[in-house]
Design a binder for these strands. Structure first.
Lengths: 199, 199
DNA sequence: GTCTATATCAGGATAGAC
DNA sequence: GTCTATCCTGATATAGAC
């Protein structure tokens, strides 16, 4: 549902921009409207003229972030010319680079998972807009590439992406880097061997 | 070193029991001391006599929950008599059963991940007490079992457990069941084939 | 040592001026 | 339509009785 028409969309954007950092850093319950107001350089009344309440603001913001599909960047695997090992590794590396260099993605993952109990629809928006496209794209690639004979491409895609996401959660989100570090290249080498190598 | 205050450990347990549900359901910022007090059937002053503040109470509770290592139950893989495929499948099934039947584990995962930005030490306690033992146990099993010749057991363990945890997060925590369902048996079949890979 | 009662203050949300 | 100023609920934390 788009914001009401008789209000300036410019201010709405301003509010959403200010709300982003606050919600990402502090979660829903921890976010303070005052901070959002200060960051957006708008008065509190203006916020409540554009959004009925805190919940609605949160919903709009998170759904919009989930709709930015560049998060995992694992689609667009159209070309079948190159070796699958090369293509898969490049995509995995790009995804990990994205995440490792942009702390906002980490906090976004924290929010989506942390609030998935109270905001199930937001969690499902994330599944629909981020995870599903990545899984579908990879499944399609594994199915169609002439050099590959994967028994169950859908499950293989889940294993591939699941291992990567778990690596991200473990290493960066949960700060496992200091406790059980692992070389990224080593993980990718063996993961590719598991997925691609025919039995 | 502060002198030990007089307080009954019995009341402390009572408070922690009451705090569990509230913190799990609402996260740190969303949890209300009043609710904890009501659930524990204790007065508010008693809570503050046993714990300096809300943060300390949260820390004790979550660290204690993480120390319950039965969460993932993937260690104790000592016997090398049976077929690896049988053993691995049984352990994976038990882990998934645990999680699927106990909603508290799902909310615990939400909390640990959701609060990992503000409470990094709790996240690391989870890594140390839950994830690491499971990974180490599986790595050891994959390394020592005479019938297996795994190139990189450590990464293979990460792929196995990572795929399972991602499945749990995707399906149950993020409510992906309704959007992209997948048969548990099918996932396990192919995952085992990928990991064990008979030649 | 635990309770009742309360201090203190911040939060979300609104009324009214312009 | 936006701002200033304010309401009021409800939160954490404490003081003082027993």
């Amino acid at each position: 549902m788009p914001p009401p028409r008789d209000l300036s969309p410019e201010k709405a954007e301003q509010i959403l921009a200010g709300a982003m950092r606050e919600f990402l850093e502090n979660g829903f319950a921890g976010a303070r409207i005052d901070k959002i107001v200060a960051a957006a350089k708008v008065s509190k009344a203006t916020v409540y003229r554009h959004f009925p309440d805190k919940v609605a603001l949160f919903n709009v913001l998170i759904q919009r972030m989930a709709a930015k599909k560049e998060l995992f960047e694992l689609q667009n695997m159209q070309s079948f010319d190159e070796e699958p090992a090369i293509v898969l590794r490049r995509h995995a590396e790009k995804m990990l680079d994205n995440v490792a260099t942009d702390p906002q993605i980490l906090t976004f993952l924290r929010i989506i998972i942390g609030e998935s109990g109270r905001f199930p629809l937001l969690a499902q928006a994330f599944i629909r807009d981020v995870e599903k496209p990545a899984l579908d794209g990879l499944t399609r690639y594994l199915t169609l590439h002439p050099k590959l004979k994967i028994a169950d491409p859908e499950v293989t895609a889940r294993a591939f992406i699941g291992t990567l996401i778990h690596f991200v959660l473990f290493t960066y989100v949960l700060h496992g880097k200091d406790i059980m570090p692992i070389e990224r290249d080593r993980l990718l080498d063996e993961l590719l061997a598991l997925v691609i190598k025919p039995k």
